[in-house]
Write a protein that binds this DNA or RNA. Structure first.
Lengths: 164, 164
DNA sequence: ATTGAAAGACCGACCAA
DNA sequence: TTGGTCGGTCTTTCAAT
């Protein structure tokens, strides 16, 4: 999975910025903005996808609108014997966990979780706490977002119907 | 900014799922998959954008590849007099803050921050700590992600060149 | 929601610097 | 190697049904 070192020039960065702003912008339009032809833009995009710089194109949605009304960050404290590897396997089994990472500080890992409601969140949390090597969890439930169009405010695990 | 209540039917949810999976999927292809014509799909997408269910289409990139090599979550403790409103204004001035929310628990808010490196992060943190109503901060620096293709693993504040 | 037609986007092949 | 041009094909988009 390790890829060759990628060097992006200024044109590449402008193309990426344009696609982050609107992933459906046509290559011709991007090209017009930076002084390149549409096929030239496409070649650069293909190269960056190949290199793994661009990993995909997605729609951002309001999770609320899809029924994900509860969001939380959960600090996880593990038994000292448990390797991060083990945690990674567990975490993948929960569609409600939309991000998980190891962190500095007292906790071993931080989970970003979306659930349909508090009841759903409680069920997920209970399942997580029942995992053998997890010692304790500390939850911070999100009350409100302070940035409207943060990229990750639109992150959602799919549709509730798919995962419940 | 308050919008009319939106009701999504099953077709709408399938369209959204398809666009989350790949925002550049053609309407014709989505239509073929769910038994609708391309114009019918387009009108539903337009309606959902209008209603604010779909907020945009973006490219997901590896922040590392763009030079964002340091990521952290920072708990913020405020003076009890400071309203969340005030915090929202401040937070918008930092391009490095890619998400900010009020949370339950001891902290008043949680910030999700990306910086180019530790030095950059330290500068950002010092500026934040210098804000008048902030009493203390607790940082958790992200060591490694446990989920490969988490939607928000690709969230990045732009290009370092734009913001530094 | 579908059809049909015009405008536009995509994508490969080929050529020039 | 990187960009430009060209042509065939698919997609988008708007009207009318």
């Amino acid at each position: 999975m390790t890829r060759p070192p990628v060097t992006l020039d200024d044109l590449d960065r402008k193309i990426v910025a344009a696609l982050i702003a609107n992933a459906r912008t046509s290559f011709a339009e991007i090209g017009a903005a930076i002084g390149l032809s549409a096929p030239a833009v496409k070649r650069r995009v293909d190269r960056m996808r190949e290199a793994g710089v661009i990993t995909g194109f997605t729609a951002t949605v309001l999770p609320n609108a899809l029924g994900w009304r509860t969001e939380a960050y959960v600090e996880v404290y593990c038994d000292s014997a448990a390797p991060p590897r083990r945690l990674a396997e567990v975490v993948r089994d929960y569609p409600e966990i939309i991000a998980a990472m190891t962190v500095t500080g007292g906790a071993d890992a931080l989970l970003h979780i979306r659930a349909t409601d508090i009841e759903h969140f409680e069920r997920v949390l209970e399942r997580i706490r029942a995992e053998p090597f997890i010692r304790k969890t500390v939850s911070q439930i999100v009350l409100s977002h302070l940035i409207a169009n943060s990229p990750e405010a639109g992150a959602s695990p799919g549709t509730p119907a798919d995962t419940q």
